[in-house]
Computed example of a mutant assay.
Amino acid sequence: MQPRLPIEIILLIPSFLSGDKDKQALRKLCLTSSLFLHPSRTLLYNHLVLSFGPRYTESPLPGTRLLQLLQLSPGLSKYVKKLTISTIPGGQRWLGVDVTLPDALTRIGPNQITSFSLERISLDEWSSLRGATKSSIIDTCFSASLVDLTLCRAPFDLLKHCGPQLKRFEARGVELARNNNIEPPNSPPITLDSLCLNGYPFHKYIAHLLDPSSKIQLHALTKLEITSTSPADNTAASRILSHCRNTLETFIVQPYAIY
């Protein structure tokens, strides 16, 4: 009888692959043995990226593709833990016309999402979205498991829809609503552990983070990363530091240079 590796060791094989870089190998592992099915799917479907750009102009919209996939294989939804919704630079604004996206997202279950990134969805585009699409995105922000939120050129006020379990927030060129069209729910305060402010003069919205009546609290930050784009940003950075100087462990800053 030929010696065999213990099953516990065999099951470790997929963990040496990357869900982003080794998709083809992971798909083949799924077909190789039932032993590899669960660990390979865990890596393959852990991070779901919904985007639409010039290369996909003749393809079904992301919501349609996702809905078709989950209708054929509903068991795959349980593997999704990270979600990214974005518009590729130069691509069309697809969120406003993708009527199947809300249905597709409800099949995942928002309370299993631990990390959510919304990228290049402007305030104007947000305002034009269907109510069901807005609700599905807001429900994702309010996921009971969400600990990591990234907003890139997206409405800043979505942060206020997150629950108290949120710990890490990254803002890259976020936009402030001109009115209260994103009304936050009544929920406990959010005590952030990590904050990254990058791009766009963030001093314009820092008051919303430092307002004593705000649900966002910075007094327990252990990591702060800042890229200043104006002298006012440098001043705002100092204000943030005054709130977390007793807890901060890592501080990364690229100050605005004044010559």
Rank of each mutant, 00 (worst) to 15 (best):
F116H: 01
T140C: 06
Q71I: 12
T150G: 02
H161V: 00
Q165V: 09
I85P: 10
T114Q: 10
V80Y: 00
P189Q: 04
L67H: 07
T106F: 12
T114G: 06
E119D: 11
C141W: 00
G131Y: 13
L69H: 11
L158G: 02
E119F: 05
R178E: 14
V99T: 05
A144R: 14
N181D: 15
T84W: 02
R178W: 12
E183M: 05
P188T: 02
L158I: 09
L176M: 15
G75W: 00
P89G: 01
I121T: 13
P184N: 07
N180F: 08
D148F: 07
R178H: 13
P110Q: 08
I138N: 00
G96T: 11
G75K: 00
V99P: 00
P189T: 08
K134R: 15
I88Y: 03
G96R: 12
S127K: 15
K134T: 04
V147F: 04
P189H: 02
G173T: 05
F116V: 01
V147I: 09
R168W: 07
P74G: 09
P110G: 03
G75P: 02
D157V: 08
K81T: 02
T114F: 01
L151H: 11
F169S: 08
V99E: 06
L118N: 05
Q92P: 13
T84Q: 12
C162W: 02
D148R: 11
A154P: 00
S115T: 11
P189D: 03
I113E: 02
S128H: 09
I113N: 06
P102L: 03
L67K: 06
S86P: 03
Q92K: 13
D124L: 15
T191A: 11
L83K: 01
L70M: 10
C162G: 07
E125H: 12
S136F: 02
P185K: 06
V147Q: 06
V174Y: 07
P74M: 09
T133W: 14
G163L: 03
L83T: 08
K160H: 10
N111G: 05
P155V: 09
F142K: 11
T133E: 11
K82F: 04
W94C: 01
G91C: 06
A171V: 09
E170C: 11
A177P: 06
R172T: 10
S135D: 13
